[in-house]
């Protein structure tokens, strides 16, 4: 479903992604772990044009979503195509990034109204369904500032789901949360995984990775060091660097 081939990414002279190759199948949950600064966010952001790759190819459903050959020009995509690509991918950010001037309901409805051009009624129905799913129906008329971090992140998940994406990208969705609020977000993510959503999750929650992931990717210093099953990576990693990282955080 996602195919990342020989991807490199540099910021000026800083090489942040080095020869990344990764495939994610439909329905799979893949967790990305690794130290801070290892390029995890950049990899996720390269899938929906928040970053453009320096070299390599990225496909979603066998359709090209980014391509560049080294120093050649980046592949040009029309704004419409970029919007389509983004509609196939839902993204959840560490800092929620809800729209503060809109209620919860308006946050969830906005994209289906303005990007998908659904009618107000359809968008509202869809939004209510999703708010029910994340357990926040009673907060629908609140502004985000009135919600806890965990509630805000659940709204952000509902907002991303409103576009009916085929793939969900999570970039450390619980890292900005107080510890007691982490579980409510992870629960929502687990139920998404149970429903068969394809998910690519950058996380420091090793418990979640162990329990939910089909495969775990360990990144360090811009490289994928190891891709393994959760059992193997946590009990019997095949690389010394993985072992070192896990021993430092567990």
């Amino acid at each position: 479903m996602i195919r990342i081939e020989n991807v490199y990414k540099s910021f000026d002279n800083l090489e942040v992604l080095k020869n990344i190759n990764l495939t994610v199948e439909k329905g799979e949950v893949v967790c990305i772990i690794g130290p801070s600064g290892s390029g995890k966010s950049t990899l996720l952001r390269s899938l929906n044009h928040l970053e453009r790759i320096t070299s390599g190819r990225v496909y979603i459903n066998d359709e090209l979503v980014d391509e560049r050959n080294g120093n050649g020009d980046a592949h040009k995509f029309s704004p419409k195509r970029v919007s389509e690509i983004c509609s196939e991918l839902g993204m959840v950010f560490q800092r929620f990034n809800l729209f503060p001037h809109m209620t919860v309901m308006e946050n969830v409805m906005l994209a289906s109204r303005k990007v998908k051009k659904l009618s107000k009624d359809e968008a509202a129905e869809n939004a209510l369904e999703l708010l029910e799913k994340v357990g926040l129906t009673d907060k629908k008329d609140q502004y985000p500032a009135k919600l806890s971090g965990g509630q805000q992140q659940r709204v952000a998940i509902a907002r991303a789901l409103a576009m009916k994406p085929q793939i969900m990208l999570f970039d450390e969705p619980t890292s900005a949360l107080d510890p007691e609020l982490v579980y409510e977000v992870l629960d929502v993510m687990k139920s998404l995984a149970d429903e068969g959503m394809t998910m690519l999750v950058v996380t420091h929650e090793m418990g979640f990775a162990k329990e939910v992931a089909d495969r775990v990717v360990f990144m360090d210093n811009g490289e994928i060091v190891e891709i393994n099953s959760p059992e193997n990576i946590f009990s019997n990693p095949s690389h010394e660097r993985t072992r070192e990282f896990l021993s430092r955080i567990l």
Binding site: N48, F93, N97, K114, K116
Partner: peptide, 16 residues
Amino acid sequence: KGQWEAAHALGFSKLQ
């Protein structure tokens, strides 16, 4: 900047 990024990720154009 996160506001721009969230909107982009939802498929909004820059003008939208």
